[in-house]
Amino acid sequence: MNLSGGTERVKHIVMWNLVGSSEEEKAASVTAVKSRFERLLGVIPGMTHLEIGVDFSRVNYACDIVLYSEFESREALAAYATHPAHLKVRDELEGVRIARHQVDYVSR
């Protein structure tokens, strides 16, 4: 999903491992994360792209899910971090995400 055609992008990538001791529990966690974050596109000012990817490799060092998003500026990314809609998603997913890795960078 892409909303803007600007030249500079701030990319925000977050990877998580999720709770779930069975395939069904893990799938429910994936669905919860995916559906809640996808609701943010079009709600967060300055967010131009958002996608959720689910790992299929199942290698032992892979994360379960990745959030890939783009913002118009560093300021837009900073505003996202404290936006009420984002904070609501974060609170709703408390305890579902058990490990987190993040990278933010500027791309032209």
Rank of each mutant, 00 (worst) to 15 (best):
A78H: 13
M15F: 03
R39Y: 10
H101M: 04
K88Q: 12
V66F: 13
K34C: 04
S73L: 04
E75L: 02
V14K: 05
A27L: 06
V59C: 13
N17S: 11
W16L: 08
V89I: 00
N60F: 02
V96S: 10
Y80S: 11
T31C: 03
L18F: 03
L41V: 10
E51D: 08
S21D: 09
Y61N: 06
S21R: 02
A99T: 11
I44L: 03
T82D: 14
N17K: 13
F37K: 01
F37C: 02
E25L: 08
Y105K: 06
G6S: 11
P84D: 07
M15Q: 04
A81C: 04
Y68G: 09
A32S: 15
S29L: 02
D91M: 09
A76Q: 10
I13H: 06
H86C: 13
F56Y: 12
G6I: 04
E38V: 00
E8A: 07
K34E: 10
R100V: 05
L50V: 01
R36K: 12
D91V: 04
I13S: 04
Y61C: 01
T82G: 12
N60C: 00
R100C: 05
R39C: 09
V103N: 12
A99S: 14
R74I: 01
L87M: 15
V43D: 11
D64C: 01
R90T: 08
R39A: 14
G20S: 12
E25V: 01
D91A: 14
H83Y: 15
A28H: 07
S107H: 11
G20F: 03
V54S: 11
I52R: 08
L67N: 03
A27K: 10
G6K: 11
R39N: 14
S4G: 13
S69P: 10
C63H: 09
R9H: 05
T48S: 09
G46Q: 08
V96N: 12
K34L: 03
C63R: 08
V19L: 11
Y61P: 00
T31I: 00
L41D: 10
S35V: 00
A27F: 07
R108C: 06
G6Y: 11
V10P: 01
D64W: 02
